[in-house]
Design a protein around this nucleic acid. Structure first.
Lengths: 221, 221, 221, 221
DNA sequence: AATGAATGAGAATTCATTCAT
DNA sequence: TATGAATGAATTCTCATTCAT
């Protein structure tokens, strides 16, 4: 029992410390594919290469797995977003572009998009999940972004806009791009192409849809 | 026949024609509040003022209720959207504004937003729901919108943008506004205020975030 | 309702007194096809050209329909069988042949075989049905048959056999013929052919399987 | 049953391999007593000393239990019957007697008769059960028996009879004996007494009911 | 630590029966 | 009489969770 038992289990022996993470990985995939309710604990176990009982060794309940999933994802998100947005001083359009591109890049990784997708899906059923996500992620990130915009307006970089509402204009198109692709399978001709979306989006976001000569004659109100 | 006792409690109300709609109304509320999986058929019945069995009188399964919900909502959506977008000829910004405002207005009615919310939530678990929604709503509406944009570009009203991707920039901010409010309870100071969101959004959409003088010095690429 | 309403209902108007019988007819078919438990009251009603509620106008419960079915079938069976067997005095082989042929003939009518088939199927679940069938049919018919055999033995027409057990030898082959055909779809080449079965059976029953010369050397004990 | 309780109560007996058989045993008893439809899965579980869920651990549905029951019974039946009938060469009456006696003996065991009884009862409701039983049992056994008879006729041991129809005369009386006893509780004075039935039956089968002197004057046609 | 057999509460669905019309 | 909408008890089946090994 002490050393070489290579033929036990279908896979090579793994370090026990990695187990909880493997469970979360498996759960993430499944919750994303079918939702929390439709995923059986045994499915999670199987996909993680474990038995049902073992899952309960690391998580007291199925709901705890979902919670663990969100918790695990929360720290790096808030961290890296705030880090990038952090204390930049100059033209906010540069930071915004940078961050948007970074987010766009990250969302190319299915492991990363999966988290918000699962959260969106399940929060209504588990309000304290929403609470957690809001407190740990949104309440930290949103004020920074709107602060950035406010400063941009004050410093003359940006037109007079409502900073809070403008956050929706910055992030919304990317969310929709994802939703269309993931939920309905609607992508542009060549695939997800987040890069192109970001280019098109930033161009409109900063310079508007209107053709230059029309700027005088057009009024959106 | 002898004596008429019409007020004998909620039982035997005999309004057969209205029943399916009452069931759908109740189901919509519950699916929205807790999701499809967490809603028991008995809950639906109770909220509709019926007994469990009666629900099955009109719908062969719980899933059929969900389907009926989507089906009921689909026709008016596609209709009214296409009607508004229809065959407008002039400056597309006027149509876009009009439609966006119309959508914004409609989304003020919780009965109306509820449908896409439920669809988004459950679609992963019921792929043919996605199919239905896509075929009946998205595949009809999206091409019209991107056609509008394409024409706007060709006729010089709009800058050179990718029509398909630009759809995301038009609708995305509104989706995010809703998601933030409904999923995480994050609204601007005074409530949902869809009107203000729409104004802010359209202003940015057409004229861009950048302050006018900066147009020369800024490059979004 | 006053005079000529030929287009109401799928069939010509029938006299109300026939209703209970129509219900029993429908029930018989269905109980035979699928068994009592698998037959819904609504199925019975539909096949009888009535509505569910109307069935309850004539029978207080589903079980009462089954009971009514058996009751209706019992009288003529006992009657006609006893009549034929009744008070015959001469060679019992003639009566037995006659009755067997009569039974064989009757069993050609699906409406008639259906009754014992349904009874066999359901008696275990409704013991008082068995009781009824036994008291009304079997306890009347069997003693007459074994009495006939006993007398045949006493009068030298038949070999020394056990009259009670011999009843099984007389009727059993016909039962098996039916069971094989109805339950497993196993019939002789040209169909049910009850006539041929009866001929073959009677020939063996009275004269035995053994070839004549072997009679001396063979002993069945 | 009386003593050896491996203590610890009925829970967690951990005898995984025996379980399916225990379930089948319990189901057999119940299906026989009350029929398939009237037996609840929980009843089966309870009688097997298990919980409802455990039944589903081994059988995916109640119907699968019924199927398993038949499947389990089928192999030994066909095997032992064919073995006995197999390749006998001489006087077929000896084999027939032997097999009939063997069957008679076996049918003394309630566990064995139960199977065909359940099959007969439920087969109309589950046609593929009939299919299975027919293919695996009847289609194997019947041709062997009729072949035996045909050979007996050819070799002069038996009178000119129809081999296929004669099968009914051989087996039918035993079936009826069982049906009368099990369905209606009608047995000869001293109980089932299969031995006596078999003796009486074989005597008639081979030598006929008719008293010897009458052979000339009697004609069964 | 790991397993998977066993449990039982809970949910979907069916259908006999009732009753206002 | 006749109808069929409405009811709810009963039943099948699922699956999170426990626990002996």
């Amino acid at each position: 029992m002490s050393d070489s038992i290579p033929e036990r289990g279908p896979k090579f022996r793994r370090r026990a410390e990695a187990r909880p993470d493997e469970v979360l990985d498996a759960a993430l995939e499944l919750f994303m594919e079918q939702g929390f309710a439709a995923t059986r604990v045994e499915d999670i176990a199987r996909r993680a290469g474990l038995s049902k009982g073992t899952v309960y060794l690391y998580f007291p309940s199925k709901e705890a797995v979902l919670e663990g999933l969100v918790r695990r994802a929360i720290v790096p998100i808030a961290d890296s977003a705030l880090e990038a947005l952090g204390s930049y001083e100059g033209d906010p359009r540069i930071v915004i572009s940078t961050v948007i591109r970074m987010i766009g890049h990250r969302f190319g990784d299915p492991r990363i998009v999966a988290i918000p997708k699962v959260v969106f899906r399940e929060v209504l059923g588990f309000p304290h999940l929403a609470q957690m996500y809001r407190t740990e992620v949104l309440d930290k990130v949103l004020p920074v972004v709107s602060g950035l915009i406010r400063r941009g307006v004050e410093q003359g970089y940006l037109r007079q806009v409502d900073p809070e509402l403008t956050v929706r204009s910055i992030i919304g198109p990317m969310l929709l791009h994802l939703v269309m692709a993931e939920v309905f399978g609607i992508t542009p001709a060549g695939g997800l192409q987040f890069d192109k979306l970001v280019d098109n989006h930033l161009s409109i976001l900063f310079d508007g849809l209107s053709a230059p000569p029309s700027a005088k004659t057009w009024s959106s109100s």
